[in-house]
Structure formats: structure tokens, C-alpha cells
Amino acid sequence: MRLTVLVLLLIFFAWGEESSYKPGEGVQVGSLPLYAGGYFSLNYKQNETMKQFSIDDLALLAYGDSGKFSYLAEIEASDLYVRNLQPENNHTSDTRFHAERLYLNYDFNDDNALRVGKFNSPIGFWNLSPINVLRDTTSSPISTEILFPKYTTGVNLAHHVYTVSEDTINLMLQETRDLDAIFNSGDVYNNFDIDRHYGLGLIHSEGEWKFQFNAGRFQTMEPKSLYYLMASVSYENESFKLLSEIGSQHDNNSFTVPYAGYLQGVYRLTPQHSLIARLEAYKDHTLDQKEAFGVFGYTYRPIYPVALKAEYQSHSSGHEDQFLCSFSVLF
């Protein structure tokens, strides 16, 4: 895997200068149907009991298309370097690269497409732009972490209808384990450890409004069957963005997560400066936690693919308040 990373890095930098590179759009490798890019983020976290600095993500992307086929491969090292400053002064590093996404698309026509491999589950809005630099805040809402499988390894069938509005139906099917060998060996870090997922998603977009509804069932390796429901809405104009997602999860007997959701507003002071306020609430029977908290953030983007973010989380249980900041780049 390290050899693959080295080769991808060499490809990226070898061709980077010759191509008309624009930040956040990657580079074409020669004249091949191959584009290379990636992203990384540096994070700092401080709360009552800890201070921590980390190189949270380093990922490389490769993608391209030919005719009706297209593909994407992504490898990512998570928590590449973690420096604890409090309560103890030590560090850890994990240089293993995970197979984060790997899929092949086939467009039957403009209305129907098939995706095969490992991909971001098309559930809600946040989950499709989950990396730091594309997010509005350094942290992600709890509801995007605990309700549904963030990744699906299997197939997705998408059907689009374009009229005055835009409608999409997604059908996700997984009947196997994750394709990342490190994940399957027990290092479960960004998804439920599952071997089944059947999901349905409906998206309706009209003007500045977008609505989405998702429902599905997945099976963990315990094994345990879990069902989720999720409703999302977004509104966006030039200076303001409103985003809300709420859902629940239950097993065969009762609710495991009766509710988890958030309401977030983003106000763009200028194209570079944004203020963010997010209210979150969730009740998780599995972890026996119930909480409501607010996130107040500021983001500076000198150009869109480069973000400097700071946020303060004010929790109902005061000792969990925390400050987060990050520097993230998409290249």
C-alpha cells in the first residue's frame, strides 16, 4: 500500500507543473483519462481535560472517465499523526492507508446510472461532502455519524428525472463486507462494521430548495439488524445557507437512537468569511446518551479549496464544551 501511495504522489507532482493546475481541481496525468488530486487537514482540539493536535486526514484521489464508464479510487490515512499535549505529552502515528472509496460507474443514459464498489452512501447532504475542507465546520454533526452506514460496498442504482425540478431515486445494495482489508481486520474507524445494507433515497430539488428522504436496513457483524430513517432539507442563496437533517434508528425491538438531528445556518459575510451556528440534539440508547448542544463557528477561505476554521461547542453538560480549529486543503 505504501508503494501505491508513493507512485500516486510521484504521478501527482511529476505532472503537476506541466498541467494547467487550478487549486481544488486536481491535475490530469498526461493526456490519459486520469486525474489526480487529494486533500489533507490539520486539527487542534481543546476541552476541559485534553489538548490535542493532529494531522487528521491525508488522502489521494484518482479518477477519470471513458465513454459511458468512469471510476474513482481514494486512499486515506486517518490520524496520521496525533500529538497529545494534555493530560499527557505523547504522540501516536498511523501511516496505514485505507481503501476509502473505490468504484466504477456506468451511465446507461442521462436518466439511469449504476455504481459498483465502495462509495459514500448517498444518505442526507452532509455525507456526500464529508471531508474537512468541504464541510462548513471542523466537526460533523452527530446525526451523520451514528444513524446509518457512511459507506456502502456494493451497488447503487440511480434514476434521475429532470423537469422543472430535479428528482433522483437511489437504491443501495450491499451483500458483502467492506473492501478495505485494514477495516475488516478490526480497525473499524469511520463506518459501522456491516455486511448487509439495503437503502432507498429520494431527492427533490427545486430552485434554492432541496429535500431528501432516506430509509434503510443494515446488518452489523454481531449480527444485529438496524433500521434507519432520515429526512433532510437545505436552502441556499448567495449569502445564506440553511441545512437541517433529522433521523432515527431502531432494531427489531425498539429505538436504538430515538432521534438525532441538527439545524445549521451559514451566513457569508463575504465570499471568504462565513459565520456558522448549529444546534444539535440526539438521544442514543446504545451509548445511553442524551444531549443538546450548540456549535458556533467561523470559516475563512482565501480560495474555496483552502479553509481555516474555528468553532466552539457549548454542551448541555458543560464539562464537554470544546474548542476546535483546523486548516484543510483540497488539491
Partner: peptide
């Protein structure tokens, strides 16, 4: 310009 930059950054991530 910002909305377009955001749109294409997300599309780059999606390939």
C-alpha cells in the same frame, strides 16, 4: 463565483 467554486470542489471530490 463562490457557489460555483464550492460546486466544482465537491464535484472534484466525487470524480
Amino acid at each position: 463565483d463562490l457557489q460555483l467554486a464550492a460546486y466544482w470542489a465537491k464535484q472534484h471530490y466525487q470524480g
